[in-house]
Design a protein around this nucleic acid. Structure first.
Lengths: 135, 135
DNA sequence: GTAGACCCTGTACTTAGGTACCGAGTCAAG
DNA sequence: CTTGACTCGGTACCTAAGTACAGGGTCTAC
């Protein structure tokens, strides 16, 4: 099982080295084992983990929320029912984001067609298109 | 056509007064007409506008991107083709966000069922569930 | 006509999420 | 066995997006 130095991990994940250390401090990455010298040795799976963090951020999740997602598991500290409740809460949140995103997408599509067939144009065509969708 | 003071607008939109002024400075809200006294008189439509800004932020759009969405329109400065291109770019962005949200939702659903039927649990069940979705 | 709530501008502070820099130690290729 | 790239921890700095005064004017209900 190969491991990565912090620089390799950062390069592969497309973030920078200090960001990796920052995430480690924040608890988003597990503290990796160290060589004698103190150099960190990251598992390759952390590349995917960093990728997820980046994409989740682009969806408006805070690092705290991302941490919660990543720590959804059953272990001595957390019961199955507990995890289940937290998963449901996240599902609700995700569902709301999806709904809003759909509205925005519909509005954009409407704009895309109407901006050629040029009907009456209000103050803000985008918002007009947006609430033409079922608010 | 009734108008709102900055305090009324802020209250109705669920943001605070300095935020409204901040958005005005950033150009996300049009500069409203003023009374003799200098008091701003906002149109009611700005309530919806602020609502959209809030929801779009929760989807990871920056204020700059939100400004671009709100200013999608054809006018003397922008041709129809220009708007069309920008709409398409936004649609691409929105599509990517949707795809990632769907993956997250699927992963959460899988967690919700698997956390009762307790199979083997890896380091991070959530990420395991996530890439069990079509990457 | 005045008290309390509200608004004005301007400037300063805060929080989240990084980024940069420092001096010192480590690694690997020639 | 040295040199250039990399890593270490620590501290300081930065940007986006607010949020909080301060000092002064305005509104409205009594």
């Amino acid at each position: 099982m190969t491991t990565l130095t912090i620089g390799q991990l950062a390069r592969e994940a497309g973030v920078n080295v200090q960001t990796v250390r920052y995430y480690e401090r924040r608890g988003l990455l597990a503290e990796p084992p160290r060589r004698e010298s103190g150099y960190r040795e990251f598992p390759e799976s952390d590349v995917a983990r960093l990728g997820f963090i980046r994409r989740a951020q682009a969806l408006g999740f805070t690092l705290a929320e991302i941490g919660e997602l990543l720590s959804l598991r059953v272990d001595p500290q957390t019961t199955s029912a507990d995890v289940h409740a937290r998963v449901e809460a996240k599902l609700k949140d995700v569902g709301e984001k999806m709904a809003e995103l759909k509205r925005i997408r519909s509005a954009l599509k409407e704009l895309a067609t109407s901006c050629k067939s040029h009907g009456p144009v209000g103050e803000c065509p985008f918002l007009d298109a947006l609430d033409a969708q079922g608010n």
